[in-house]
Design a protein around this nucleic acid. Structure first.
Length: 430
DNA sequence: TCTGGGGTCCTAGGACCC
DNA sequence: TCTGGGGTCCTAGGACCC
């Protein structure tokens, strides 16, 4: 049985180019939230030496706007376009699961007698034709080897974006040429240790004994070792299951030690998480809040607190989740630290059917009223504009318009006022 | 001046129970 | 003059992924 991994080439850049074909063949990058750093690069940008994660300001010191075109990220666009890719994959493979926004694994069971490389080439061409997005496909006996094959599919033109590793000779050749740091499952930390041991290629790594890998590293590295030997052992389950956590976090344009400002940010993050939770029909049983000072400012005192609290009843209601996030903040906030980033994580997520309520919690009538409130607010926000109606905890005074360029909540007062009449009408109608 | 965001899994160690 | 042992659950931290 074989696996195929299908992933979009330079996904976000390719999505932008669908609407800007004039940028084909030119250096293009896409930036993270707040335009902080580079998260996607065209091949031309890679050739210029722009690395993943390069801070935008550093890149601009080296390349002007005429040389490298930069886009702010537009996740709605990427998720719409890649959904089209997934639809095509779904029709082409007996079984598949989405692994990330731009990547899917196909389980090619019962297809051993097929010409799988031709199958891959056809799929690649179909996706390009129907969505405008170029993908590369790697095919092999394990997911880790398929990932390696997809690297080769991208790297060497001769493969025409589809590379299959289907025998031991090909596998050995591929392993010998493959830098160990590019192996799926070998990250920066492990690479640093491997390098010290003189292990440079995937072949070097695979040449050690399984027990050596187990004792030197752990079971995860051992699985990687087995996969490189063609033993399929990274489970498919877990890659498809529901979310176990939902997180919303942002870096701030300017650092702050103001508790009220942090409280408003946290309330917004919590509210956003609650909305996501409702969107997928789930409830959460824990709420965690974390704060980060600026790790790049070594001249400043550092503090990375986090605190989780359990909810009496698992919920997806905005009010109890925002309330809990505020309690967490109260427990971890310390004066005199300048915070750069904060976030909220909802955990212990389950389906919202059959929730066990706790008699100490808000009474059922109050919960029903809160649910109705969320329903109405969700509908208004969907109809008129994101985050028009929020809890008062999410509002705050600021003179810095940049604070909310992060894309979650554009709650600048002028915008609020301009729409308030329309909203009042809608609320009375509702 | 400016340095992302959202996930998963594993492990060690402490608390607690019988 | 000595201080159980085994099991489970939870949490924090560290590693990885895209």
């Amino acid at each position: 049985m074989f696996y195929a991994v299908v992933d979009c080439d330079n996904c976000f850049v390719s999505c932008e180019r669908v609407y800007r074909p004039d940028l084909n063949g030119k250096p293009v990058v896409v930036l993270s939230n707040n335009d902080g750093c580079v998260v996607s690069r065209s091949n031309e940008a890679k050739k210029l030496g722009i690395k993943m994660g390069t801070p935008y300001f550093q890149m601009r010191e080296r390349f002007s706007e005429d040389v490298v075109t930069a886009f702010s990220s537009n996740y709605e666009l990427y998720s719409n376009l890649t959904a089209g890719v997934m639809d095509i994959i779904k029709d082409a493979a007996p079984e598949y699961f989405r692994y990330s926004i731009d990547e899917a694994f196909c389980i090619l069971s019962g297809m051993d007698h097929f010409d799988l490389r031709k199958w891959g080439l056809d799929l690649r061409n179909k996706i390009l034709k129907m969505t405008g997005l170029p993908v590369s496909i790697g095919i092999a006996r394990t997911k880790t080897l398929a990932k390696m094959a997809s690297h080769y599919a991208k790297k060497y033109k001769g493969y025409q974006h589809c590379c299959m590793i289907d025998c031991d000779e090909k596998c050995e050749r591929a392993l010998r040429l493959y830098p160990v740091e590019d192996v799926w499952g070998i990250g920066r930390r492990y690479f640093a240790r491997l390098k010290n041991m003189g292990i440079k290629t995937a072949y070097d790594f695979a040449s050690h004994t399984r027990s050596w890998v187990r004792t030197t590293f752990n079971v995860v590295a051992e699985r990687t070792w087995m996969e490189l030997h063609g033993i399929d052992c990274v489970p498919n389950e877990g890659m498809t299951s529901r979310h176990k956590t939902i997180c919303c976090s942002r870096s701030f344009a300017t650092m702050t030690d103001n508790k009220d400002t942090l409280r408003a940010y946290i309330a917004n993050f919590a509210s956003y998480c609650a909305k996501k939770l409702r969107g997928e029909g789930s409830v959460a049983a824990t709420v965690e809040v974390f704060l980060y000072t600026n790790r790049f400012r070594t001249d400043l005192a550092q503090y990375y607190p986090c605190k989780e609290i359990k909810l009496l009843t698992p919920t997806n209601l905005t009010i109890p989740i925002v309330r809990a996030s505020g309690e967490c903040l109260d427990m971890i906030y310390r004066e005199h630290y300048l915070f750069k980033k904060a976030g909220v994580i909802l955990g212990n997520i389950t389906s919202n059917t059959g929730i066990q309520t706790n008699f100490l919690d808000d009474d059922i009538n109050k919960q029903i009223r809160m649910k109705r409130l969320d329903d109405v607010v969700d509908r208004i926000n969907q109809k008129i504009g994101r985050d028009l109606v929020t809890l008062s905890a999410q509002q705050y005074e600021t003179h810095d318009e940049k604070v909310w360029t992060s894309g979650i909540a554009d709650i600048a007062n002028h915008r609020l006022k301009s729409k308030i009449n329309k909203t009042n009408t809608l609320i009375s109608n509702t």
